[in-house]
Simulated scan of single mutants.
Amino acid sequence: MGRMILTGSLLLALSASAMASQVYKWVDEKGITHFGAQPPQGQTAEQIDTKVPQIRSVAPTAAAGSQEDPEQKAADEKVRREVARQEAERKKYCETTRNNLAQLRNNPRVRVTDENGAPRRLGEEERQQRIREAEEAIAKNCR
């Protein structure tokens, strides 16, 4: 039984290339491109290769990683540090914004400092506007 399956699979795999026929491509007088198994009479046609090339994968070797340029390693490390710094800043911003949003939602009598340094109470409309702004900032910048 196993021998029959192996033989059938082998024949099936080989039959695909044996069954492949020649394909022709040509453009008619109206500029329309046609494809067919037979070339047109009295017109030149281009033969198209229908064989699919075998793709061989090459596994990366350990030696390739060890020959990495030291300058590239330094640049990669610098980028990693910068990304980590930006991520830490983003997390801190998100935490602060979430805390501010919680304060705005839970306390209808919020006091802020104006540009002169004097404390003042936010009106309800301004408080709602700041809540919307905080929600938008969290949605945009925080995960």
Results as ranks from 00 to 15, higher is better:
R132A: 12
G42K: 00
A20P: 11
P70V: 03
Q43A: 08
A88C: 03
A88V: 02
L101E: 03
R111H: 11
A84R: 00
N141S: 08
A74Y: 01
V23Q: 05
E135A: 02
V27D: 03
A88E: 07
E95T: 10
Q43L: 04
Q103L: 12
C94F: 03
L10F: 14
A18L: 15
M4D: 13
K73I: 12
V112E: 10
T113H: 07
E125M: 09
E89A: 13
P40D: 04
Q22Y: 07
V112R: 09
G36E: 02
D49G: 03
Q43C: 02
E29H: 14
R90Q: 08
A37C: 13
C142W: 02
A88F: 02
E87L: 07
S66H: 07
L10H: 10
A84I: 05
A20N: 11
K51A: 07
G117N: 05
L12W: 10
N99H: 05
P60Q: 05
G31S: 09
T44M: 07
V58A: 13
A74R: 01
N116G: 04
L101P: 04
E115V: 08
R85P: 00
G2P: 10
K73Q: 09
R121P: 06
Y24G: 01
T7H: 12
A84Y: 01
A134T: 03
